[in-house]
Every structure is written in structure tokens, then in C-alpha cells.
Computed example of a mutant assay.
Amino acid sequence: MKITRCLWIVLFVFAYKTSDAQSMAYKTLLKGVYDKEFPLVNIDDQDVLEAAIFLDTREREEYEVSHLQNARWVGFNEFDLKRVKDLDKDKPIVVYCSIGARSQEIGKKLKEAGFLRVYNLYGGIFHWVNEELPVYTNGQSTQKVHAYNRAWGIWLSKGEKVY
């Protein structure tokens, strides 16, 4: 069911290549991906974002292309709670990936491990960059963003796509 919905969304975006149509399609896609019970944080929620520790749940090669400033790589396929054992379980944690599917899964693992304030970044790094917020590599601002693959890369409308 979700795959069929996603296919229709992609077809809609290709048929109507306007930013409004793409934005509406992206929001619809995200509704189908996110668990309603898992908390999201939006880019305008500065109280949470300014206090948070950011965890990048993408694969290492994606992180190395660019990431949010001061984000710690924890990965998805290779995720291990040992990577976060030094973190304060009471501090806010924001997990993110390309759009938020993988990060939600890692966020659930963190909650199960006793982390109290875990949030999934709404729209992931794609939304972050589409809203013209900065990403970094080696401490330097960059326009490059790993677009995961060409099918998912359609949701990244700003920045320079890297595959």
C-alpha cells in the first residue's frame, strides 16, 4: 500500500514540476513514512534544535559528503548503541537521515535504550537543504548533499546532488 502511494506521488511530481506540487507531494510522502507516535522536530523549533545533539543515521559515505554542523555519525546498517554510550540520556537528541525513515528507526532504538528526549528531524537533510540551511564537510560549508539514489534524489531540490 505505501509503495503504491509513493509511486503515485512520484508520478504526480513528474507530471507537475512546480515547486508547490513537489512540496505537497513531499509532505504526503512524509506522512506515509512517519510513525504518528514518534516525535518530530521542525526546522523552526529553535528551542529543541539549539539544545540538541544531532545524530546522522545515514551511511558513512552519505555523511562524508555533508552533514549538519557538529552532527555525530552513528549510521543505520552498522548502528550500535556503543556509539552513543557517552551521551546524556536526558539531553535532547535529534536524529536525521535523507528524509526521516531510517532516522525514525534509530530513534526508536534510542528510546528503547532509555534516551528520554529523542526527535526525528522533519523532512531529514533533504528538507534542511531545500530550506537553504547549511551543511558541512570537514568543518567547511558545502552545497553537496548525498541524494541516496536517483529515485529519492527527486526530493532534493536545492544543493548539489552527489550519488
Rank of each mutant, 00 (worst) to 15 (best):
residue 1 M to W: 08
residue 1 M to L: 11
residue 5 R to I: 15
residue 5 R to E: 14
residue 6 C to H: 13
residue 7 L to Q: 13
residue 9 I to A: 10
residue 18 T to A: 06
residue 24 M to E: 14
residue 27 K to Q: 12
residue 30 L to Q: 12
residue 30 L to A: 09
residue 31 K to V: 10
residue 31 K to L: 13
residue 31 K to Q: 13
residue 32 G to N: 14
residue 35 D to Q: 08
residue 35 D to V: 05
residue 38 F to K: 06
residue 39 P to S: 10
residue 41 V to M: 07
residue 41 V to S: 08
residue 44 D to Y: 09
residue 45 D to Y: 04
residue 45 D to N: 14
residue 47 D to M: 07
residue 49 L to N: 02
residue 50 E to C: 00
residue 52 A to H: 01
residue 53 I to W: 00
residue 54 F to K: 03
residue 55 L to S: 06
residue 58 R to Y: 03
residue 59 E to M: 02
residue 65 V to G: 05
residue 65 V to D: 04
residue 67 H to E: 05
residue 80 D to S: 13
residue 80 D to R: 05
residue 81 L to K: 03
residue 84 V to I: 08
residue 85 K to W: 00
residue 86 D to E: 08
residue 86 D to C: 01
residue 88 D to Q: 07
residue 93 I to M: 01
residue 96 Y to P: 09
residue 98 S to M: 01
residue 99 I to W: 06
residue 100 G to A: 07
residue 102 R to P: 00
residue 103 S to Q: 04
residue 111 K to H: 06
residue 117 R to Y: 03
residue 119 Y to H: 06
residue 119 Y to D: 02
residue 120 N to G: 03
residue 120 N to P: 05
residue 122 Y to I: 00
residue 128 W to I: 05
residue 129 V to T: 12
residue 130 N to Y: 09
residue 130 N to I: 08
residue 132 E to G: 02
residue 135 V to E: 03
residue 137 T to M: 07
residue 139 G to M: 05
residue 141 S to L: 14
residue 143 Q to N: 14
residue 144 K to Y: 10
residue 144 K to N: 15
residue 146 H to M: 06
residue 151 A to Y: 13
residue 155 W to Y: 11
residue 157 S to P: 00
residue 160 E to I: 14
residue 161 K to T: 07
residue 162 V to R: 07
residue 163 Y to N: 11
